[in-house]
Amino acid sequence: MTVLDTKDESLPRAEHPAAEAWRVFRSRPAALFGLLLLSIIVIVSLFGPVLYAVDPFEIVWAPLTPPFETETAILGTDNLGRDMLAGLIVGGRATLLVGVTAALITIIIGILVGALAGYYLGWVDDVLMRITEFFQVLPPLLFAMVLVTLFSPSLPVVAMSIGIVSWPATARLARAEFMRIRGLEYVSAGRSIGARDGRLIWRVILPNALAPLIVSATLTIGVAILFEAGLSFLGLSDPNTMSWGLMIGSGRQYVLDAWWVVTLPGAMIFLTVLGVSLIGDGLNDAFNPKLRER
């Protein structure tokens, strides 16, 4: 047995980096508020329709009734006399679903392209980056509108379109992280024990590149929700699925006479995006050791 290290080191509790990140996240009031906000919205969207079983497409009262005038529709009715509250509760499902799906598509394409480009560099990088730039220079809203019109205005198509127009930014971020990490010594060390490229990319580099990508994915959810609202507003969403964007879109002509038809779903979108952004900021602090100590 050789001489042991002379430095006396008490064994610290083994803390996984994720556990450490959660500890920092927990200490941020804004981040916790965001988490609370989003949790409430998600829970209401999931279970609200069970407790408040009103069909959001059913005409329940006189059109454009203001909030708090009738007990039948406590938050008023829209231009067709449909219950606003029911719409708000059910509409969150589609909005959140589209937001999360689009963010997932964004992150998957983005990581795939960015990882390969940033790891292999050379011609792989050239080809992938030119493709990325091609997608990046297209005006996103216009391109998404074209895609939705080309196929059908259904939720999967909307989510896919948003994903397709927003992945380039993630790809560039992933590429930059991969380029930075591939030159670090633990990657060389991985190579020196005979690890394959695939292993180095997905098991060695990706876990270390994940932090900024998670932050970006979270923020992408917010962007995607806004995007979905924008498309719905323009009438490019599934008219048979209630969503906040659809409510704003169908109520936009009446905004001067009936503020609530646009303001209420708008406020829901605002609160959701706020929650997502606060969580994103909190994650950013949690993953970034330089911001941690503040």
């Binding site: 010594e185 060389s188 190579r191 005979g194 060695v204 876990p207 270390n208």
Partner: peptide, 25 residues
């Protein structure tokens, strides 16, 4: 060559601070 690396020839690096992957034990 990959079969040989790590199996028949091992290597240790200059910087022990940065040659271990920070996210695995």
């Amino acid at each position: 060559m990959r079969e040989i690396r790590g199996n028949e020839i091992g290597m240790i690096f200059q910087e022990p601070m940065s040659s271990l992957n920070p996210v695995f034990t």
